[in-house]
Structures are given as structure tokens and as C-alpha cells.
Design a protein around this nucleic acid. Structure first.
Length: 501
RNA sequence: GACCCGUUCGUCUAGCGGUCAGGACAUCGCCCUUUCACGGCGGUAACACGGGUUCGAUUCCCGUACGGGUCGCCA
């Protein structure tokens, strides 16, 4: 059996978005599982809309997700000569013809629509392709004379194209429903459908796994394969990923919130995002894993199969305006699961990057204070869903002094609620200052006996202290927090809190 | 509009003729915590509709509705 070769072929007209990433992932999983080759090809034939910046964005996205390719990146624009050569070959063999219709006459969309519709109803393209049967000699002569023309593929008027899609099953289409597509523009520029076929042939692609929006193109492409006398690869079309509005996800409409780099920048763990993406439109064999959601990269490779991709589109929820739930909540949850469960040694570097970005990383975190910081991160990660949380919500735990924000609602709820705290908190600080051991037990008994002495509920002090120490109303168990913040900072912040009341 | 495709809880999904229609996220309630967005337990919630086929349809067939995709000298 020949080796499986698949490719991911994005056009660099935008960054890598969620849909593209999933296509890349499925190709990659398939290749890895089958021991095949995964090829990256940048479809940049439309030079006007392509840019190096976008290519860079795609490359970065792939790298971040760990979707390594075995060959490439190839650039489609490097193969223009081969595309033209193929067009010439098609012209020679009679599978294509020159169309001398002036560009302007074709560009009127309304006219075009009208004619195309009439053509379909008639069943046969009438005078719409006036040059389709132009004698070769005349065609050559006019071309030699420099008359502008495009090269069109001569779609057979009879018959149909068929293929079996790995996802959608049997697909048939009457040839007469297909238009004579342009292969070469009048400026000699090759067009998409020709380019993909030529490149896929040259690169020995055995399986084409791409979005369902290409389902119609596939029929045209099959015709080109046949005209070129080449074997047709196996196709697998993926269902689309929809925006919350249920329309196709698009970079233009939905913005950077659907770009892979946004997920990186907003604190996703690549493994978690990969896991989430894999489960969008695909599920492992339920006989094995019916009630599981978390799968490692290795497990995904092992379990993946094209025939378990399903046909219906999936909605991907995001809401840029919502700070807490800016993207699909399940994705966020899953990220939290990874943050919680991954080995702390793997988490630390990721957190470090985040803290550096926020300007709160200190070299000592890796030396003298290494154990302490690891412990703090270990404490915090149980309730965080994103790496950025360590730099925002985690900030009070990591910075010295008072260099963080006190949330107004927390202050109102836990500090200002009872004015007696204004005197109690500094007194508690004094009490803590006397402790020789500053651990869970000693701080707890100190606080509780202090509360008893003063005749107040321990909860009042616990709540007050939480906000005094972290500016927040929520967090890990209070005595864990005390230990994490440490004696010195605890005293300082308790005293300072009095001024907030 | 034409041609394709799809339709199981709000969302992601399991299901491939007989299930109390399962899981996850979200949501709600309870417990734990004299704090909490941790944790534990539990609940609400779905087979789009109408016809067939069948002893029996979420599962098979046909319509309808709704949703989506494609109809470039873009990719």
C-alpha cells in the first residue's frame, strides 16, 4: 500500500482561524495515525490578497498547536509555470479552449446569473460559451495576434462526476450543471481549481481533507484530474464551524477572536485547545470512550478516524464583549482542566511567560523563592481557567507590597461591611506578627482565638483578611492564602486595609 | 433563485430498530466551607414536523419546515 500523503492548504488572506486550525488538525491526526506525511502548502496565488504577515500568522498558529509538517511550507505561487503548463496541455488535448470574450462582458454579475440560470433550465449551455467550439486554427490565429483571452476548461455536456466522500458518502453531479471554469486568467494568471489539482498531483496527495465549502469544487477538480489523466485522490469534507449566529465562521466578519493566536495570547494551553478542536465535529468510538472528554495528543492520534467525523455543522460560541466568557465555555473549562492536571513542571514555564508579559516575574522566583512560588501556583491553578489568570487574578499573590488592585465590590462586601474591622485588622496584624511559625495551623488558631477574644465571628475576619490581602472576595482556603502571602506581606496589607475602610 | 448538505438537551456530542435517549459544558438546587468562581451530591433540559415501512421507530424511506454551503478572470 502506498504511503498516505495529506496536505493543509490555507490561503494567507488572513490569520489561522479556528476552522482552519481544525482542518489542519484533522489532516495532521490522520497522517500521524496512518504513518503518512503531512504537507503544508500556502495557497498564495492571489497575490493581491496574500501577505507575508498572514503567512507568518499561519505558521505561528501551526507551531503553537504543535502541528508539525513533514514537508513544506510550499508556496503555490512558486509553481505558476507548472500550472500554465497544465493549462497548455489541456488546451492541446482539447480539454480546454480560449475564450476571447472581453472581460467586461463577463463581469456583470446580473447578466451572468441570468444566462447561467437560463442555461441550467435548458439543460445545455447555449450561446453562453461562444468560443467553446471555435476552430483551433482560428483560436491559434487570434491568440497569436495578441487578442486577450482566458483559458476555460471544457466541461463535458454529457455524463456526471461521482466520488465517494469519506464523510458525506456518495456524491454525484451532472456535468451540465457545471460551468466552463476559467483555468488561466487573461493575464496568464492560473486560478485556484487548476492550481490545487496540479499541486496535489505533483505532491502525490492521496487524501484531500478540507472544508465542506469545497464540496462543489471537487466535482470540477475531478474533471481536471481526469482530463490530465491522473488518478483522483480520496476526498473527505469536513462540516463547517459556525459562529453563534449560525453562519460560517469567517475572519473578516468575526475578527481576531476566532484566530488561533488569540487563543494563545489569551492564555490557552495548546493541548487543551487541540483537545477541544478535535471534539468539534468528531468523536471517538463510543464503544471505547463514551463518557470522556479529555484526550491527550497521543490518544487523539490513536483514536482518530475519518469515518467518525460527522456531517452536521457545529456552533462555536464566543462573545468578545464578555471578559470572563469571551469564548466557548467548554473550551475554557477544558483549559482549566489542563491547567489543573498538568505536571507543575510543565505549567511553570507557561506561567512564567505570562508573568513576564505582565511585568511581575522576578528572577528570584526561579531561585530562592522557587519552592514558594511553585506552591502558590499550585494553590491558584485549581480555580483558574486561563494562563492569563495567573497574571491578573494571581497578581496579589506574587507581587510585593501593595502593587495590585482592590476590587470595589470586594472591599464593600468584606471590608466596609463592618466598621469594626478598621481597628480589628491592624490588631490582627499585630497578633500575626507575634507568631514564630507562620503556617496553616498557627495562623488559624491565632485568628480564631483572636475572634473569640473580640467576640466577633471568625468569618468576619476571614472575609476581611481575604480582601485585605488579595483585594478579592474569592480565592483558595484562607489559611492557605495566608501562608502563600507570607507573614511580612500579610502584616503590611492588614494594616493598609484599615485605610480602605 | 438553482444545486447540494444537514437537523438528538441552550452548546459540543453518544446512539447505528426494542435504551428510564447516555456524557460534557452551561444552568438551577443542596452539602462542605462561620469566605469563595475549589470540591461533592442531585435536578431541569433534546430525538424539528407529517406521512409511511415494521410487532416496534431517535435510528430505515418519502415529503414539509428550518438552518447551512456553493453558484468569480477569489481561494
Amino acid at each position: 500500500m502506498t504511503q498516505i500523503r495529506v496536505r493543509f492548504a490555507p490561503s494567507p488572506t488572513g490569520y489561522l482561524h479556528v476552522g482552519g486550525a481544525r482542518t489542519a488538525l484533522f489532516n495532521w491526526l490522520f497522517a500521524r495515525q496512518q504513518g503518512g506525511r503531512f504537507i503544508l502548502r500556502i495557497e498564495d496565488t492571489d497575490l493581491q490578497r496574500s501577505s507575508d504577515e498572514m503567512v507568518e500568522g499561519i505558521l505561528q498558529g501551526m507551531e503553537w498547536l504543535g502541528l508539525d509538517y513533514d514537508e513544506g511550507p510550499f508556496y503555490q505561487s512558486d509553481y505558476v509555470e507548472q500550472h500554465r503548463q497544465a493549462a497548455r496541455q489541456l488546451l492541446e488535448s482539447g480539454w480546454a479552449y480560449r475564450d476571447f470574450t472581453p472581460k467586461e462582458e463577463r463581469s456583470d454579475a446580473a447578466v451572468k446569473q441570468q444566462v447561467a440560470e437560463a442555461a441550467r433550465q435548458q439543460g445545455v449551455p447555449p450561446a453562453y460559451w461562444p468560443f467553446r467550439d471555435l476552430p483551433r486554427a482560428e483560436s491559434d490565429a487570434r491568440a497569436a495576434n495578441g487578442e486577450p483571452h482566458v483559458i476555460r476548461f471544457k466541461v463535458p455536456q454529457e455524463g456526471r462526476t461521482s466520488f465517494i466522500d469519506s464523510v458525506f458518502g456518495q456524491q454525484d453531479r451532472e456535468c451540465r450543471e457545471l460551468e466552463d471554469l476559467v483555468l488561466l486568467r487573461s493575464d496568464g494568471h492560473p486560478l485556484y481549481n487548476l492550481c490545487v489539482v496540479v499541486d496535489d498531483i505533483n505532491m502525490g496527495i492521496t487524501h484531500v481533507v478540507r472544508g465542506q465549502d469545497h464540496l462543489m469544487n471537487t466535482h470540477k477538480q475531478i474533471l481536471i484530474y481526469q482530463a490530465l489523466g491522473k488518478p483522483v485522490p480520496q476526498f473527505a469534507h469536513l462540516p463547517l464551524i459556525l459562529a453563534p449566529s449560525k453562519e460560517k465562521l469567517s475572519k473578516r466578519k468575526h475578527g481576531e477572536i476566532v484566530s488561533v493566536t488569540a487563543y494563545r495570547d489569551r492564555g490557552f494551553i495548546p493541548e487543551a485547545f487541540l483537545n477541544f478542536l478535535a471534539l468539534l465535529g468528531w468523536a471517538p468510538d463510543s464503544g471505547v470512550y463514551r463518557d470522556r472528554e479529555i484526550f491527550s495528543r497521543a490518544e487523539l492520534i490513536e483514536l482518530f478516524s475519518l469515518d467518525r467525523i460527522h456531517k452536521s455543522n457545529a456552533v462555536f460560541n464566543f462573545n468578545e464583549g464578555d471578559l470572563r466568557n469571551w469564548t466557548d465555555q467548554k473550551a475554557l473549562w477544558m483549559n482549566g482542566e489542563y491547567i489543573k492536571a498538568m505536571p507543575i513542571d510543565e505549567l511553570m514555564p507557561l506561567v512564567k511567560t505570562e508573568l513576564e508579559r505582565a511585568g511581575i516575574w522576578q528572577p528570584a522566583f526561579e531561585t530562592e523563592r522557587s519552592d514558594e512560588v511553585r506552591q502558590t501556583i499550585g494553590l491558584l491553578r485549581d480555580r483558574y481557567r486561563s494562563l492569563t489568570d495567573f497574571a491578573t487574578l494571581g497578581r496579589p499573590y506574587l507581587v510585593d507590597g501593595l502593587d495590585f488592585e482592590w476590587e470595589e465590590s470586594a472591599v464593600a462586601k468584606n471590608l466596609r461591611k463592618d466598621p469594626v474591622l478598621k481597628t480589628l485588622l491592624p490588631e490582627l496584624a499585630t497578633r500575626f506578627a507575634l507568631l514564630e511559625q507562620f503556617d496553616h495551623e498557627s495562623t488559624e488558631s491565632a485568628l480564631r482565638s483572636f475572634a473569640e477574644e473580640k467576640g466577633v465571628k471568625a468569618g468576619l475576619l476571614i472575609n476581611g483578611a481575604r480582601t485585605a490581602l488579595t483585594g478579592q472576595a474569592v480565592g483558595p482556603g484562607m489559611f492557605e492564602v495566608l501562608v502563600a502571602i507570607g507573614q511580612r506581606r500579610t502584616i503590611e496589607r492588614l494594616n493598609h486595609a484599615a485605610s480602605l475602610i
